[in-house]
Design a protein around this nucleic acid. Structure first.
Lengths: 230, 230
DNA sequence: GTCTATATGACGATAGAC
DNA sequence: GTCTATCGTCATATAGAC
């Protein structure tokens, strides 16, 4: 018996390797991961790691899966809570965006792995990518929910709203990580733009009936709806 | 005599190396550049390249400088032309954004090098970075010019408007390159969001006097100006 | 001045001993 | 499971031919 003792021990070793690998990536850059350096810090020889991971790409894949799962959990928790308590879309979306971007800035290694493509030749496996798919789906449902509540306009597919939303949020993350990587969420020059950009987004996608002054007849064209109509 | 013949020949060799290095990066990934592979394709031995570049990082630096100079020239040309001919900010900004993003999507290697941080340990030299500084400065001047024309609100520093502008444009570029790197500008799912997002941006930063219906009293808060006022 | 030849040390990865 | 030994490739450096 105790058939899973060995397995649990093995899982612990795997987690330990991934933790150290994350540290190395934080210091040397995501693409600068060296399994030799990981082994050195663990006090073992490089070939020993191959008992747990078939290749360096397998380590990247496991890290990708861990990161995707973490960010999915963070966003799922906050979006669920916010949809239950918030009373207007601006408040709701700012809280979701804050949680998402805060996680991204505080986990820059995961963010680079998830949102950029820094490792030549590495593509996440379907299993590792699944939490990212879940995240997209739950975000789409969140916008569809807001449409049903009359919070945002319903004449645009939720997928399209999500596309613009991800451009905004990932734009903040990318600019912050690329141009001021040492700044935290609180002190970041680009994260500071979050409330304003959320307000911009909400104003643009506000439901026409929610405001006495609609912008349907604006000559400049207010909403992104005309995106595909050129 | 003919003192610069040798020098011109040398410059041609440098350009040739950079061209081939760009090809290799396109195939193997930016961080996957191998000088040995470059030498192989040029029909020389790897050490020969060190007569032209002191290190691999020097090659990255030269590529960074070439890319920054290209994109600066593209944006400078279009923004100058647009400020001379356009009659409203939506039209002007859409043309500038289109030129910028089109260049970025059609030069994904340069874009990754310029806008992400894919190469561990590489930081562009001040000389290579200078065109990027020029680009920021000329973009700031463009927004200041639009403010003086009364096209966009003047109660927000041009630097802050530019910050939000770069978040938008770099968000489109990052999402497109990371999630659909094989798509071109015309067929891209995220580049398709450009006109709508520019309209959103212009509506948010529209000068208060340009529209009969201002949004000063909006309860949701329309403009990004409240960004730093939380 | 630019090349070839050669050397060093680190890397990812595999085979096989214990 | 972890080790030693080993392979091939890489960036990089130096010495010396032409």
């Amino acid at each position: 018996m105790i058939p899973d003792r060995r397995q649990r021990r093995r899982q612990e070793s795997i987690e330990e390797i991934l933790d150290v690998a994350l540290e190395v990536m934080a210091e040397q850059g995501v693409a600068g991961l060296s399994l030799g350096e990981v082994a050195r810090r663990l006090g073992v020889r490089p070939p020993s790691l191959y008992g747990y991971f078939a290749s360096k790409h397998a380590v990247y894949d496991a890290e990708f899966g861990r990161g995707a799962q973490q960010v999915q959990a963070v966003v799922a928790e906050v979006s669920e809570r916010v949809l239950a308590t918030a009373t207007d879309p601006g408040e709701a979306l700012e809280q979701v965006a804050t949680a998402f971007i805060e996680w991204a800035i505080e986990n820059p290694v995961y963010s680079q792995l998830l949102f950029w493509r820094p490792v030549p030749g590495f593509e996440p496996s379907p299993a590792a990518y699944q939490p990212a798919v879940d995240l997209i789906e739950l975000s789409t449902r969140m916008f569809a929910d807001m449409q049903e509540r009359g919070w945002i306009r319903a004449d645009v597919p939720a997928e399209e709203i999500l596309r613009d939303w991800t451009i905004l949020t990932s734009g903040i993350i990318s600019q912050q990580l690329a141009n001021a990587p040492t700044d935290g969420f609180q002190t970041g020059r680009f994260t500071a733009a979050l409330p304003g950009l959320v307000a911009m987004f909400v104003a643009s996608y506000a439901a026409a009936t929610s405001s006495p002054k609609t912008n349907h007849n604006s000559t400049t064209g207010k909403g992104p709806r005309n995106a595909d109509q050129r």
